[in-house]
Amino acid sequence: MAKILRFRFSRGEKLKYIAHLDILRVFERAVKRAGIPAAYTQGFNPRQKLVFGLPMSIGLTSESEYADIELSEDMEPCEFIARMNEGLPEGLKVEEAVPRNTKDNIMNQITAARYEIVFEVKEPKSLFEIHSMVYDFLSREDITIEKKTKKGYRPVNIRPLIYSVSAEKTAEDRFMIKAFLSAGAENNLRADLFMQAFIQETKLEIDILSMHRKALYASAFNEWKNPFEVAND
């Protein structure tokens, strides 16, 4: 029984077209429909105390998103999971939940993310060629891209935010990049920006077919941790 729960959820193909704030709203409404006793913020425009680990951009699927929810009454994690899933549309599913006792919310704890990006090359390439491109890419000390901000474009060096990258061949002309990237409230590198940099540096002509988030990590004592492992620190 717990008043604050941390849960992991997945987002499939059907719901990948909506933006992060819209996902937040879908959850708020599901909570309401399911009659889950959410705690609300005080004040003029009360909101549910619901915090997400990391924003999801349009087009991204994920098997491993995290959020914290504060309740006004104790609730068993398994009951929470069952009721939420009745209120969630096809394409969003709560997979696991645990009590959260730490003071830190999930947003402040997330520090890294693992992605899988599948793309199709417009001109045939061997896996060896892709591998050497990845190698060259990672050998640079400076990878500067123009990042869109509220005030227009701004150059940023994203190299320090890339932890590791590997490539596999998945079908004829299709490859999958696995990238382990810095994430979180500070120093977040989105998968689409990472790919923008990769295309810019390698001059590869590709069509991105899918972007998928495999995992999110928190860090504690210099180790990557599953966010559930740090729910009670």
């Binding site: 719901l15 077209y17 933006a19 349009i58 096809e90 394409g91």
Partner: peptide, 16 residues
């Protein structure tokens, strides 16, 4: 996706 991910607010065209 090659259409949907190129437009603004693709959820206007996907229903569900």
């Amino acid at each position: 996706d090659r259409i949907l991910l190129k437009v603004e607010k693709p959820a206007k065209y996907t229903g569900n």
